[in-house]
Nucleic acid binder design. Structure first.
Lengths: 191, 191
DNA sequence: AGTATTATTTGACCTAAGTCAAATGAATAC
DNA sequence: GTATTCATTTGACTTAGGTCAAATAATACT
């Protein structure tokens, strides 16, 4: 597996090493808010015109496919939650983003960030790093679907991200693994 | 399906609208070359230190998983061929890139492009657009695996990208669709 | 505590796609 | 033109995971 995590570390250090002006420009356009469990940060068909930095709590992104939820991403502390294509193209989102627990987020509006990017070039580099990170994360996720069975994918989460198993209902984990709830239950019974 | 193609058009117009200096800087670091069918532009475990713009011909990116090829991307005229994570992190590639026909490519070395980015800020924006495009392309590919059967994925290619069926052997198409050659053959017999 | 509600497990059966092996067809070499 | 190799199809059988329905847990509610 590609060391994408270390790239995430690199991004966080990059943010911390930003010059004071850039950092406070970022601060100035951020708003901190809290939401209860089950709140929709983004609804389907809305345009994702904000990015959410999770300060505390858990959220997930998903869409419906013939009535069945497909969870595409799980968010924990320090993760960045957006519907990428909706945010990038500023068109309606096929995905929604819902809080799984109470969460506190730092919100940056799309427009403000675009303006800030043109005034503070380091933010353009940051944006590039974030897009690169997301692309590599997606590559890894595809890689897992290509090469691993459902059981292997579950064991992977169990070993590498046990906090997921703790904080998230099995129905959501199943939809994140791309399998039915029943199959997940059988996998758990077997191992 | 997300209108990712139109974003590709936007990228191409962006390139054409670059100021003369940036454009010629780009030109100066590009080298045009031709390779025969079956040539490896990138081998597994090599670091992808060049990007290949396909001028003419067909290429593909794939990796081996217990002896079985998994084709992750197909490249046609005007496409950009790189092993994204290897290029971004400058570490060994799990994928290789092989020409499917004779190809002519325009090659830009990684290092030169990095330098050019710091001298010509528009290239940073270009780099961001390319990463965004790739991330959205990956999202769509995952979306297809989540929501469509093998038959639907094949029909999709047949209708939207018939040039793929024309120019590429079925064994490669099967591995691109994530199914066995035999299954693809049966799908074709059925429809 | 006792009931309603939600989460999880188990059972029986089904289906898409995989595997292995053999057969046919197409293309290239000699 | 025939042989050799490569590409594609067909057959028989297996399997991972899905579906629908029912049975338990586990929580929450009054």
């Amino acid at each position: 597996m590609i060391p994408v995590i270390s790239y995430l570390d690199k991004i966080h250090s990059f943010i911390e090493s930003l010059d004071h002006e850039t950092l406070s420009a970022l601060q100035n356009i951020s708003i901190e808010k809290s939401y209860p469990k089950g709140y929709f940060l983004l609804k389907q068909n809305e345009i994702c015109d904000k990015s959410y930095w999770i300060k505390n709590g858990v959220a997930r992104k998903y869409y419906l496919n013939d009535g069945k939820e497909i969870t595409t991403e799980l968010y924990f502390d320090n993760d960045l939650a957006v519907s990428f294509d909706s945010y990038t193209l500023q068109h309606p989102s096929r995905e929604c983003i819902e809080t799984v627990t109470n969460v506190t987020v730092s919100i940056i509006p799309y427009q403000k960030f675009q303006e800030a990017k043109s005034n503070y070039p380091a933010l353009l580099t940051l944006d590039l790093m974030l897009a690169e990170y997301y692309a590599m994360w997606l590559e890894n996720r595809l890689f897992q679907f290509y090469t691993q069975s459902a059981t292997e994918r579950y064991l992977d989460i169990l070993h590498k991200s046990p906090h997921i198993i703790q904080s998230i209902p099995l129905s959501v984990i199943a939809s994140y693994l791309g399998i039915s709830l029943e199959t997940l239950s059988r996998i758990r019974a077997r191992i």
